[in-house]
């Protein structure tokens, strides 16, 4: 009786552990089957490298969105990475104990604010400011990148912070003993030692930025044109889906799902490189 219970529970726990495998399998299966058959119908190169998106004329090219996503992510880097990294360095090496817990809750809260609220804030506060600064409508790839830069801050700060904390203190003390100042010891001895952890954090932030939908939706302008000017409106893979999924039918709907598949492949590549990097650090 007892051994049956023990065995039965073990099987239950194993089954629970298989749930995440099943989920990933189902997600991949459903998206890929739907997506690739659509890409076959539209034509793979026409779909990926097509520069025109006109659903009403059955022209589905998503290159503008792919480039839009990449540009927005890169801009998010430009704003988010330096500040996030420096902020992590502050937390580990410069922060007085009193402020530390306050800073931590600030960063947790930044991570917890829903993306729709970020989008709303972007729409009612950042867009008007940028409209005055740069002219135009204020909604642009630049605005989206700026907002995403704020949104990826917590990810970059917390991953970099934990990898900075894991650096052997001897590095710092050694540099200090050689006569370097506190700042030089931190920046030229400790930070380089945490390099792979920091890169892992940046990769994770990249995944967040490229997959972000709701916040970007309200500040990017959403014109499906080739994004040659970052101060003009553009469209990302994610916003392409969220804008048109509501009313799309037939091939148009399938093309949007195929857009999600392209995004999913980007995400998988980013995730796998993060997993690979994390395992190499250990």
């Amino acid at each position: 009786m007892n051994s049956i219970k023990e065995k039965g529970m073990k099987w239950l726990f194993t089954a629970a552990a298989s749930a995440s495998i099943l989920c990933v399998f189902l997600i991949c299966a459903f998206l890929f089957v739907n997506g690739f058959s659509t890409m076959g119908k539209i034509g793979f190169t026409e779909f990926i490298f097509g520069t025109v998106w006109k659903p009403l004329n059955n022209i589905f090219g998503i290159l503008p969105m792919i480039l839009g996503s990449v540009e927005v992510t890169l801009l998010a880097f430009v704003f988010g990475v330096p500040i996030g990294l420096l902020c992590a360095i502050f937390l580990v090496y410069f922060c007085p104990k009193k402020i530390y817990s306050k800073m931590k809750s600030v960063i947790d809260l930044l991570a917890g604010i829903p993306s729709i609220v970020y989008g709303f804030f972007g729409l009612v506060c950042i867009v008007p400011i940028f409209r005055n600064l740069f002219g135009g409508s204020g909604k642009s790839i630049f605005t989206a990148g700026f907002l995403l830069g704020i949104m990826i801050l917590p990810t970059i700060v917390s991953v970099s912070e934990s990898s900075l904390k894991a650096v052997d203190k001897n590095y710092y003390e050694g540099a200090l003993a050689l006569g370097a100042t506190h700042e030089r010891s931190v920046f030229f001895a400790s930070v380089p030692a945490a390099k792979s952890g920091i890169i892992a954090g940046i990769i994770l932030g990249m995944g967040r930025a490229i997959g972000e939908t709701m916040a970007v939706n309200y500040v990017i302008g959403n014109q499906a044109l080739m994004p040659f000017d970052i101060f003009m409106g553009g469209r990302t893979l994610t916003t392409n889906i969220v804008l048109e999924m509501g009313y799309a039918t037939d091939l148009h709907r399938d093309a949007l799902i195929a857009t999600a598949v392209v995004l999913f492949i980007f995400i998988l590549i980013i995730n796998l490189s993060f997993a690979f990097l994390k395992r190499r650090i250990r």
């Binding site: 989920c23 990933v24 997959g211 939908t213 999600a260 995730n271 993060f274 997993a275």
Partner: peptide
């Protein structure tokens, strides 16, 4: 690996998967 993958998937992809499945 699958758990890490799940936690990195953006909500819009979950949304479309939920819609399809």
């Amino acid at each position: 690996l699958t758990t890490e993958t799940l936690s990195g998937i953006p909500s819009i992809i979950f949304g479309l998967f939920g819609y399809l499945f």
